[in-house]
Design a binder for these strands. Structure first.
Length: 310
DNA sequence: CCTTGTGTTGAC
DNA sequence: TCAACACAAGGG
């Protein structure tokens, strides 16, 4: 091999493993971006805004996440990395139905938490039995009783990223089991625009107080909550025992006006079985089972857009 | 501390 | 619309 005269300048200077102490490797897949730690992020854009779909260890997994989002966001014309869902195919049709039955926010959160496959297959099981309708969101829950209200303090809307729930009310309405005391519990909130917020609720031994932690700061930011604003918690009467929360600008009594209404559902947890047959690419990715929360929808829109089209 | 995912910019 | 890059927020 050697003596062939032409000394070709390597057209691929850094195809090797050297020169990348700097640049991150680009992905061959659409909607997939490299992460500094070697993992892969998935994202899709809509209306000039990026919607983050989560991070993945495998590049292909990120690509599949993008595909799911693309098909939910843009329908069948969506450009995908792998083979798109087919309406004539049984599984394809089922997944298409699954996508249609969930809001974009829900799908996005499933992707971010890697529960999409599990929830999809769960829906397939139920799908067989009952063509039933989804629970009527706000039709039945109109009767709500006020549990308590609180005028948020500066620290409630500050950088502590937590909302202190007055002990008395916390223990009365949101009792924490001893076991889950340290872990806390996850609460799902849905606001008037259809967004669902997830707050972690737990007890802080250090300050001996009950608090809403993870997720709260986002709520504060998006709703532009200011110190003095009053937050009220309510609960519906039905068997569902849904909880509600709404807030009012400083001083305004909770009864007078309700600028925002947030529905709070009970914690819903399920245990993931095993891998997932997945939808497209057929790529069999074996996911180790683990515990996860269901009904994750969350906001993915930054601004205060009240569109609520989701 | 490390990872996530947001801010931001600029190309397409 | 999109990805590259930087880096702050968030969780352990």
């Amino acid at each position: 091999m050697g003596s062939g005269g032409s000394v070709v300048l390597d057209p691929t200077p850094d195809i090797g493993l050297e020169a990348e102490s700097r640049k991150l490797p680009s992905s061959q897949y659409k909607g997939v971006v490299p992460q500094p730690n070697g993992r892969w992020g998935a994202q899709i854009y809509e209306k000039h805004q990026r919607v983050w779909l989560g991070t993945f260890a495998e590049e292909a997994d990120a690509a599949r996440a993008y595909d799911v989002a693309a098909q939910r966001f843009r329908g069948r014309e969506a450009v995908t990395n792998f083979t798109p869902l087919l309406e004539n195919d049984d599984d394809g049709a089922a997944e298409l139905a699954f996508l249609a039955a969930h809001s974009k926010a829900e799908i996005v959160d499933m992707l971010r938490k890697h529960t999409y496959c599990d929830e999809l297959r769960q829906s397939k099981r139920e799908g067989k039995a009952g063509v039933g309708k989804r629970n009527p969101p706000s039709s039945l829950g109109l009767a709500r009783d006020l549990l308590f209200s609180k005028a948020v303090t500066p620290s409630d809307v500050g950088k502590l990223n937590r909302l202190v729930i007055p002990k008395q009310h916390a223990e009365t309405h949101f009792p924490l089991k001893c076991g889950s005391g340290t872990t806390g519990m996850l609460l799902n909130f849905e606001d008037a625009s259809g967004k669902i917020w997830r707050f972690r609720y737990s007890y802080w031994n250090s300050s001996q107080s009950y608090v809403m932690t993870k997720g709260w700061s986002r709520f504060v930011k998006e709703k532009s909550l200011k110190a003095g604003d009053v937050v009220s918690f309510r609960r519906s009467r039905g068997p569902e025992k849904r909880l509600y929360i709404d807030w009012n600008p400083r001083g305004v009594a909770a009864d007078l006006a309700t600028p925002q209404v947030v529905r709070l559902f009970g914690v819903n947890i399920f245990r993931t079985p095993a891998g997932c047959g997945g939808g497209n690419g057929g790529g069999g990715e074996g996911k180790r089972g683990r515990e996860m929360e269901l009904f994750p929808p969350e906001q993915f829109v930054k601004k205060q857009c009240v569109g609520g089209a989701l």
